[in-house]
Computed example of a mutant assay.
Amino acid sequence: MNVVNQENAEAAARAANSPLVRDFGLLIKSATRLEQRIDIAVRRECGISHTMLEVLIRLCRQPGEQISQRHLADDLTLTSSGTTRLIDRMETSGLVRRLPSPEDRRVALVEPTEQGRAVFLEASHVHARVVQQHFVDPLDADAYARLVRALGEIDGALRDNAG
């Protein structure tokens, strides 16, 4: 390897091993592993994916609320077509129903069915158990409070500086 390539290789290694890259990678790996644990448990015990649970969480926050597919896509950071396919599967499974918007006939509103609410209640217990075991229990109360506060501050800063 010539001198320039060696210097570039060393600079790349320093960048790849920087504390910022390492720390952010730890956050992403931890979140991904936790999400995988939730998904496995919810699929096994309730027959739905973690993404379906996320839809049901959003739909069950306000009784009687109907949410457009576009808002669901934004909330879940999914593409419009991905959200449509997900809602199609959930509708086929009897978890949600689509309704035409009274204000705009181009908009489909989504609401949970009774079956969807029942599955959500079951899945929410599984979700809570997994989150407690793998997110809350590994930390003492003070560390957990600091983590949640820090995550809230990061989220707020990202929201304030969106775009």
Rank of each mutant, 00 (worst) to 15 (best):
L109H: 06
L76R: 00
A15H: 12
D39P: 05
L151N: 07
S80W: 02
V136A: 10
S93D: 15
R89C: 15
P63R: 05
F120S: 04
R58M: 07
L72K: 00
V42I: 15
L78W: 00
A128Y: 12
S101N: 14
P102H: 04
E111F: 00
T84C: 06
E10S: 13
R43S: 12
H50E: 15
D160K: 13
F120D: 05
A11C: 02
E65S: 10
E10G: 05
D74I: 15
T83P: 07
E103P: 01
E54N: 08
V126K: 01
L34C: 06
D23F: 12
E45G: 00
V136I: 15
D160Q: 15
R70P: 01
V96H: 08
R106Y: 12
L151V: 13
R98F: 00
Y144P: 00
I38A: 03
N17C: 07
E153A: 10
P138Y: 06
P63N: 07
Y144G: 01
A9I: 12
D88F: 07
A162D: 04
R106I: 05
E65M: 14
G163P: 00
N161P: 03
S68T: 10
P19Y: 02
L109T: 03
R129P: 06
V136R: 07
T84D: 02
E103F: 14
D23C: 10
H50F: 09
I87W: 05
E7R: 15
A16L: 14
T113Y: 07
A9K: 11
Q62V: 12
D104M: 14
T92Q: 08
C60Y: 00
Q132T: 12
L59K: 05
E114Y: 09
M90Q: 03
E7L: 15
G156N: 05
A9H: 10
L99V: 12
Q62A: 03
D155V: 05
V3R: 00
D140E: 06
S30V: 04
Q36S: 14
L20H: 12
A16H: 06
L109C: 10
L109P: 14
C60R: 01
R70C: 01
H125F: 01
E122M: 09
E122N: 07
V107W: 04
E35L: 13
E122C: 05
I87K: 02
A15S: 06
L72C: 00
E114D: 15
L121D: 08
Q69K: 15
Q62H: 04
A108V: 02
V130P: 11
N17G: 01
I38F: 06
Y144K: 01
L72I: 01
L99T: 12
M90E: 03
P100G: 11
V107A: 05
A128W: 06
A128E: 14
L151C: 10
R117L: 15
T84S: 06
R149C: 08
R22N: 04
D75Q: 02
I48L: 10
A141S: 11
A13I: 02
